[in-house]
Design a binder for these strands. Structure first.
Lengths: 204, 204
DNA sequence: AACGATATTCAACACTGTGTTGAAATACCT
DNA sequence: AGGTATTTCAACACAGTGTTGAATATCGTT
């Protein structure tokens, strides 16, 4: 039982390549199935054999990326109490995004899909929030909500800028910056490394 | 010379009302001009007399919102050195968004437009970045870039959550939270009000 | 109130893209 | 090499697009 026919893989590869190529020049809403198939060099009927429409294609591509994303995070999260710092987790995230740059530059780019970013955020959410909650009992749930809304969107914003600039900075350095901004806010710009209490109290 | 015919205003109002109504139920990409005109109760030809397509309509609605946005910010920015705190500016921003909730819930919502959020960010950018640069000479330009990318996206993220929750929190409180997160990072959750040096050194 | 000007309606048009069909051709895997 | 699965191809009905011109309704002004 051939899990994946060679022809199918080729077809899907052609479709996806053509799709990302088109997305570099125009927003998704003005890409038609017809045009996509012509640039991919495949028959239109073949497209419909695999996807229902353009947005279905996008969704499935994102899906596969998110599987990678989850897999990249899992080993980091499993140890959890075994000396893994939040910085390392964050670095792992950036690294994973870097490895999937071709898709991410599109889905996180100016013509990208908001929902995709939202899902990236949601994946991180459950892992981070509970750690926070344990260590900041004084904070109200609403404050926690908004803090997470802020920093998650903030990380996405950094990621977008990073991708837009060709990812010259290393994943580790990006993670380090993100971590520090989350920890110290604007203190980050003052090279505030030894934050004292705040850092010490943060879950390891 | 009548600057705006009464009929035109009525037509545009009907179109926009129908548009936001439809956007509450389905993503923009599956709204056709035909359907829009039917729910608006106007002729399809009339739509094309004012807009070229659905996205043109969205763009023009966003445009008007951004004019409001700019106007709401200008008085705050003009004084600039006269005792206006960043907190007040931020509160003004949240207030403006709240007044344009009908459009913003759409353009910043899950089916919304990334470019719109990006433009909101860009408007704030020029005003904030130079203030930062003046006071944080130790920071590299890249650090400034990424710090701004982080906090601007962070604010948008908070805004989105705020809109999604029906804006029950006051604009002032939102601004206060945003401000503190930007200043103290996670220290915000520990009720860190008297940040000492950091706050004192921050531009007024 | 009546005017010219302007906006909207309406029906019709050609056109593009959609999504599906069945049969033929092609490539796959064992 | 053979049976199977995939792709191709032409054709189809269908829905939405964007534009047209003439008729109608509404406007601002005198």
């Amino acid at each position: 039982m051939p899990k994946s026919d060679h022809r199918i893989r080729v077809t899907k590869m052609l479709i996806r390549r053509a799709f990302t190529e088109l997305l570099r020049t125009k927003p998704i809403q003005s890409i038609s199935v017809k045009e996509l198939c012509e640039t991919a060099g495949i028959n239109r009927g073949t497209f419909y054999a695999h996807y229902t429409d353009i947005y279905d294609l996008l969704k499935k591509m994102e899906e596969e990326m998110l599987v990678d994303f989850q897999q990249a995070l899992r080993p980091l999260l499993e140890v959890h109490e075994g000396g893994i710092t939040p910085a390392k987790i964050t670095a792992g995230i950036f690294q994973c995004l870097k490895e999937n740059a071709d898709i991410c530059t599109v889905t996180l780019g100016p013509f990208g899909d908001k929902e995709f970013a939202a899902r990236l955020i949601r994946i991180g959410r459950d892992n981070y929030v509970e750690s926070y909650q344990r260590f900041f009992k004084g904070a109200t749930p609403r404050q926690l909500e908004y803090y997470y809304a802020f920093v998650s969107a903030g990380c996405i914003g950094m990621l977008e800028r990073w991708l837009a600039e060709g990812m010259h900075t290393s994943a580790e350095e990006m993670a380090d910056m993100a971590e520090k901004i989350m920890m110290y806010g604007i203190g980050f710009l003052r090279g505030e490394e030894a934050g004292g209490e705040v850092k010490a109290d943060y879950p390891v």
